[in-house]
Nucleic acid binder design. Structure first.
Lengths: 205, 205, 205, 205
DNA sequence: AATGAATGAGACTTCATTCAT
DNA sequence: TATGAATGAAGTCTCATTCAT
């Protein structure tokens, strides 16, 4: 009993901190999305998360550190998203599934924050690392699937997996720009057009 | 000769102003590119342009107004660039020329500033107007050329000009993200891959 | 004929300047009344008067100089106002006429500016001189009339002319504070009450 | 003893803030009195109060808010002052006591600040409310005392309490203008003259 | 003579950061 | 541990003033 209580308390201390950090990061994500990479104050983050105005500074030490944590958080969410897509067929079919998955984009707010982070990564070295990791991971996933497609005969042998992965990813990154600028934009038919093109270019036989 | 001097002198009042504004906007463009949309001060702009630290505020009234002028300046430069591309063949061939032209991209600095402006346009209405204009103009140029291609027989009749233009523009916008994040990135071969794909998808016959 | 034209022109030069200065001072008066002693810019004065934004600085050299000119202008207008009151009876009757005259106050805008100038005179030496002159002149006019009243038998002999003049002027100055703060305030009946009191205090016999 | 220390320590967070605000407001009052309603900077306030130059802005958010707080502070001090006057006799006698009390005026500095606030109230709505409150309270106090005087027989029955209160207050407000403009001015004999007049006008019997 | 271009100082305001409780 | 008090630096913006035309 006593032990239980103690354990509970001991965990609570660490867990409460973890939960608070998590909520602060999510609040910061919203603020990045709505006010830009630097357009908010640490106090606002505390307010929005329902904690004190001093807490973000207390936990993260500096603003840039919090911004980096936001980047890492978003990237890891994207990893999770990608992992969530069930595998049906491999090769070309799955490449197309991945494209649709990417476009069907979960939360607009997260995507908006992402574009700010990508852009800022040009000039902020700590971000550049994190965001490049995301780029590379996405391209690598596509490349691997193309290689599988070549092996299982759904994709032509003369296709360059890395370059094709790059082309696909560039398209996906580009259509994001439309999506965030004008949320009513019809990105789905754009994606289907791209997929149709792709079939004609790389489908085997 | 004397007339020249006189002309120079007579021009001065209005022209001095115009020249100063122009230099300030160019300085601001550089600063947007290197320090982000908001990461510079008006004083820096004055310094970099070789004027006083107070002039930018004096002329543009507010920072956002200067930022809008930067956006307009860049957009108009892009129009000029597009107009500079000599017309050789029409239709598919010219679509490809346009893609290469876009990728071969004049100044890195201008492109970097552009990505910041695009991103900020999500949350700044005055920018959104200007940047949307650029989007629309680019897509419209591509669409028209595709229509010409359909008419002159270089592009298949069943191609949807607007959707294809959107796909092409999305790719171009996306490859920019690589280019600015890692200036050593090989965007040319990426572009050639895309062009090769495109031929197989939309070329007639 | 030629002489006429010339004369006209010669006067025009000087007269135009005088007219412009006058208009600028009146514009400045309005601005003092509506935005406070210092709450406007020289450029605004030029704008409001229908001249260039640089003219006030050009004519008056400095802002404080213009402000002093405003004070002098208002004071001299008040002199004119006082001189405009036709003399009917002398002594107590005329004291009462002067009180009513002061309360019936011509332009609200001029009175408002006046209160700003009085207040600022506490801390601005150049103004203090001008505004003290106005105080003294007003008190002196009242004092003289009281002396006349004593002589002509309308006012009691034991009345101290200077102190009574001071009391009257203080009341007038004080009711101004109501008038400018709340223009709908009924200052006329206030004045009649004061006059009735005064009669009982200083009327002879 | 120990308790004292403890109490002091325990109080600190909230009390530190309250004390700092109070000191800042008092410093601002001095500056309004000596440099005019707008003639000082927030940084000066911090300096004069012995805090950092940034604190006034941090606490009050804006200069006008601080100015409003100064107005409220002065008004509440005046209330306290009025409450401090011991009641001896009621009616006419107390009216006279109130007049002398008002003229004998505590701190010159506070009165000077007051005149700036009154004047500025013409054009600043937030101030107008506060200063009108003070006007009304003063007039109301006088009116009530006149009514008491009528009841207890020291003041004539045909006197209009509100109008007479207005007359008295106008005189008091007006003599202030002399007092602040020329601190050597003999306001006491002015007041006694007014009081003598008043007796002849409103005293019963 | 008059316009307005350009400077530079100064103020308000906002915040990241540090510090005390 | 967490709150918020306090600092100090920076940035935007506004103008009086000077200067060139």
């Amino acid at each position: 009993m006593a032990a239980d209580v103690k354990t509970k308390k001991r965990r609570t201390q660490g867990e409460r901190r973890e939960e608070a950090e998590s909520k602060l990061i999510e609040a910061a994500t919203v603020l990045v999305a709505t006010k830009g990479f630097d357009g908010f104050s640490l106090a606002e983050v505390g307010d929005l998360a329902g904690y004190s105005r001093g807490l973000p500074g207390h936990y993260f030490g500096s603003k840039i550190e919090l911004q980096n944590r936001v980047a890492e958080h978003i990237v890891s969410e994207f990893y999770k998203d990608a992992a969530d897509l069930p595998i049906r067929k491999r090769g070309l079919q799955r490449v197309n599934d991945l494209i649709r998955h990417y476009i069907r984009v979960s939360k607009l707010e997260r995507v908006k924050a992402l574009t700010f982070l990508f852009t800022q990564a040009q000039i902020e070295d700590s971000l550049k690392k994190t965001m490049t990791r995301l780029h590379n991971q996405a391209i690598s996933t596509l490349k691997q699937e193309i290689e599988i497609g070549i092996e299982n005969g759904s994709i032509r042998r003369d296709v360059d997996p890395l370059l094709q992965a790059g082309v696909i990813y560039a398209f996906l990154r580009g259509q994001l720009a439309f999506a965030v600028l004008d949320p009513s934009y019809e990105t789905v038919s754009l994606g289907e057009t791209f997929i149709a093109n792709l079939k004609q270019s790389i489908q085997a036989g």
